[in-house]
Design a binder for these strands. Structure first.
Ligand SMILES: [Mn+2]
Ligand SMILES: [Mn+2]
Ligand SMILES: [Zn+2]
Ligand SMILES: [Zn+2]
Lengths: 131, 131
DNA sequence: TCAATAGTTTAGAATTATTCTAAACTGATA
DNA sequence: TATCAGTTTAGAATAATTCTAAACTATTGA
């Protein structure tokens, strides 16, 4: 719990009850891809300590502070990735499931150069799956 | 106009007034990335010959018949691509603009293998841009 | 210790892209 | 030309997300 509070403080986020609960759930050491709804559901399975609005607020703040990465490859459902290291994804549209691809399992040996006046912010490889 | 009707007939789509109007606009030889709204706006600039529901219906049908490709990389806005050949995209989240990357400008020399029981449907490289 | 306050949480309303429904319409066919 | 499957449509419904504004709370400095 102290570890979680440290993480929050280090990002200038007050360690409120709700943020600690959310961060504790998210940063438990296992990589996760959550949606606002899935996270809200998991948190409120027992007690209702966090509102949906706070889940949204917190996910966005965590993104801004680079504790999470936002992934949008499905209309109407944004995923948040606790694995903030460089990596890619498999995506099964049918199952709505995201799987990590380790960065070393992909090699892009030729990349186009960015259009004039723009910089490359992120290179995202999505491998869409079917059965 | 006859060319457009041929395209539709070849896909077993009745060349209705609305579909011809839409297809004529989409398949004019230049590659486009449209949204339902943008297409609806462009079509109804003068006369109102097509309803928004029909725009949605038609875009989905054209996708099913592989006259278009669906691209979802922005929550709440689906893009439809008239360029159905193999290629990738730059995406500027700020401008909400998609730019084609020619397939030969990208080389992926190492690809992970699909998870057991799944096949690779599509490999999508999205290069996110910033200023 | 505690008051002040900036930051945070919240319920519920609003927004918005998209889908659904069911009735009216129309292109193809015989 | 009648028939009917296929198509279009307005408007309602849905659903993820954002907004609003009032209540709450962690922090801080007196
Ligand atoms: Mn939507
Ligand atoms: Mn949405
Ligand atoms: Zn991931
Ligand atoms: Zn394209």
């Amino acid at each position: 719990m102290q570890r979680i509070k440290e993480i929050l403080r280090s990002k200038n986020l007050r360690p409120t009850k709700q943020r600690v609960l959310i961060a504790d759930h998210l940063f438990d050491g296992t990589d996760k891809h959550v949606t606002a709804e899935s996270l809200f559901r998991e948190l409120s399975s027992n007690k209702r300590d966090v509102s949906l609005a706070t889940v949204y607020n917190t996910l966005h703040e965590f993104c801004k502070k680079e504790l999470l990465n936002k992934i949008t490859l499905d209309a109407d459902k944004v995923y948040f990735d606790t694995n903030t290291s460089l990596h890619h994804h498999f995506f099964s549209e049918k199952d709505k499931i995201l799987l990590d691809i380790k960065n070393e399992d992909v090699k892009i040996s030729l990349m186009p150069k960015a259009p004039k006046g723009k910089k490359i912010k992120k290179v995202e490889l999505v491998i869409h799956l079917e059965d």
